[in-house]
Design a protein around this nucleic acid. Sequence first.
DNA 1: TTGTACGCGTTATCAT
DNA 2: ATGATAACGCGTACAA
Lengths: 344, 344
Amino acid sequence: MRQKEKVTIYDISKKLNISAATVSRALNDSNRVSLKTKELVLKTAKALNYQQNALALALKSGRTFNVGVVVPYINHTFFASVIRGIEEELEPKGYHVIICQSHEDVNNEAKQLKTLLNTHIDGIFISVSKTTEDVKHIEEVRDEGIPLIFFDRKKDISGVSSVTINDYEGAYNATTHLIEQGYKKIAHIGGDHKLQIYKHRYDGYVAALNDHNIAIDENLIMQVSSTVEAGIEAVKLLMKRKIAFDALFSASDYVALGGMRELRAHGFKIPEDIGVVGFSNEPFTKYLERPLTTVGQTPVLMGQIAAQVFLEQISDVKKNVQVEKKVVLSPELYTRDTSSKKGS
Amino acid sequence: MRQKEKVTIYDISKKLNISAATVSRALNDSNRVSLKTKELVLKTAKALNYQQNALALALKSGRTFNVGVVVPYINHTFFASVIRGIEEELEPKGYHVIICQSHEDVNNEAKQLKTLLNTHIDGIFISVSKTTEDVKHIEEVRDEGIPLIFFDRKKDISGVSSVTINDYEGAYNATTHLIEQGYKKIAHIGGDHKLQIYKHRYDGYVAALNDHNIAIDENLIMQVSSTVEAGIEAVKLLMKRKIAFDALFSASDYVALGGMRELRAHGFKIPEDIGVVGFSNEPFTKYLERPLTTVGQTPVLMGQIAAQVFLEQISDVKKNVQVEKKVVLSPELYTRDTSSKKGS
DNA sequence: TTGTACGCGTTATCAT
DNA sequence: ATGATAACGCGTACAA
C-alpha cells in the first residue's frame, strides 16, 4: 500500500481560487485576512482533512516542537516519573517528548545527544550517566545554543540550568532517623561519587553521624552500583570484614533490597537486629513483606519544574539573555517498617 | 545565546567553487562524481563540520528514519525491555526511536498516534491500551500506509503484523505446575478480557484445570487491573466470599505481590498454605523475601523480532506487496519459592 | 563529470 | 485584503 497523498495549502488554495499565502495566513489566524475568507479556508481545510506538515514548518521556522530527554534507563520508576512530569507540562504547549536512554554509558549518551541535535529538537533534558566524566558532548549542545536542562544527576557546567533534589538533606534526615531509633553503628552503601547525588548522600550521612558524635568507620562505607545484585555483594563483603553494624543506610532501594536479602540469609532480623533505610521510594518498597523506609524525591514535580525552566529559557533566548537557573527540591522521608528498632 | 549557524552543502560548494549538486552527489557517494572531487568534498565537509540537515532530507525524501513506539507505560520493565530490543535492532540501521505513553487511555493513544503521524515517522510499534476497544485510530495509521506492528497487546486488524507471546501456553504451564505441586483449589486473578493477553491467560488456566479434571469455580476468578493495590483488593474480596482456595495464579506480578501481602495479613503462609504464581518475571520478583514463581516473556527478543518484521515490511512496501506477519513466542516458567507446597 | 533548475510544504516579504 | 515570490536545505532529472 502506498502512502496516502497529503493535502497541502495549495490544494485548499486551488479549491478556493485564492493564493497559498492567503491560505497560510488564514490558517495562522493572521489579522491581515478578511473574516470571510478566513472562515472559508478553515471550513474547507477541515473538509479536506488538512494537516499541517510539521517537517516543512520545522525546516522553515527552525522549531520542531520536539524536546529530547536523555536518561540512564527508562524503566527506573524515578526517571519514568520525571518524564511524566515533563510531558504533563509540555504537551499542552504543543511539544512532543523524545525519550532516549544512555544505559549508563557516556558514549551512548554522546551519540544520543548528537542524534537529538540532528533531529533538530528545541531543547534537551538530561540526567547524566554514571560514566560521564568528560562533558565535551554536553558543552557542545550548550554551544549550539540549544536550551539544556539537567535534572537529578547534573554536572557543573556554566550556562546550564538544573533541577535537583537536596540529596544531602535526604541522607542527613534518613541517617538521623536511624540514630533516633536507637541504632548506633550505621553502615552506608552508597553509589559512585563521580555522580554528585551519591557524593551528597554520603556527605549527608557523614554530617548526621558527626552531629550526633558518632565516629565514622570507613570500613562500613562502600560505593557500589544501584542494583539488587550489588546490594547482595556489598553485604557479603561487609560480613566478611566482620565489623559489626546494626543499621544500613543505602543510597538505592535496589541495593537495600539486595542487602536485606543477604542480611536475612545470615540470620539477621530486620528491623530488630539491623535497621535499613533506602533511597528513592520505588513503588515496590511499599509492598515488601516488611515495607522499606526510604527517601522520596517527588520526581513528577521535578519534571514539571524542569519543563517550566525550559519554557522560561526559550522565552529568554528571544531576549538574548542567558540564564542559569538552579532549582533544588526537598526530599521526604517515608518511615516504614524496616527502621523501627523495637519492631513494628 | 543564538543558534550557531549550520553549514550547508552550499557553504561547501562555494568554498570549492563547484555546484551544490555536485557536493550532494559526492556526499551520497554517487558514481557520477570524479574520485578527486569526491575526496575533496568529503575532506572539506569534515573540516567545516558539516552535518546533513535531517529535516530537509525528510521533507525531500519523505523518510525521517524515526519510528514511534506506543506503550501503556514506559516504567514497566516488560515494555522497557521490548523497547530496548527494538532499539538494539534498529539503531544500527540508522533509525531513532520515539517513545510515547498512552497511560492506558484510548484517547491518549489516539492522540499519540496522531502526533507520530504528524512527525512523519517511518513506522509504528504499538501495544494497545487497556481501554482500546474502538480501533479507528489504529486503522487510520494502517490506511495512511505507515508500517504498523503490534507487540504483546494486539487487536485483530487485517493488514497489521504482530509479535506476541503464547499467553495461553504460559498460563496453562503455570496452572499445571501448581496442580502438580499438589494444590487443588486454584484461584485466578486475571486482567480485563478486553485485552487478548488476559483472555488467553484465562483460557490457559481453565484448560489446565479441565485437563486435570478440576472443576472451575467462577467465584475464584476475577478480572482486575495490573497493580499492587488491585491485588490487595482482590484478595480482600476473595476472603469476604469465604470460599477456600489453596493457590493463586495471577496474570500480573504486581497483583501477585499485593495478593501475597493481603494473604499474609490474614495469617496464611506462602507457599505452605497457599501457593502463588505471577506473570511477567518483573525484576523484583526474584528478590522478594520469598522469590515469586512467575511466567517469563523474553521481551527483548520480542522487540528485536518486531523490529525485524518492520524492516521486512518497509522493503516489501517497495515491492507493493502487503504482508501480515504473525509471530508468537513461547513463554518460560520460572519456578521459585512461592509455589512449592512443602516449602523450600 | 558537472551544472541548472525544480520541488518537497510552509511562511515572510514585498508588492498590489 | 490578497497575490507573487523567495527562502529553509536537500536530492535529482535534465541539460551540457
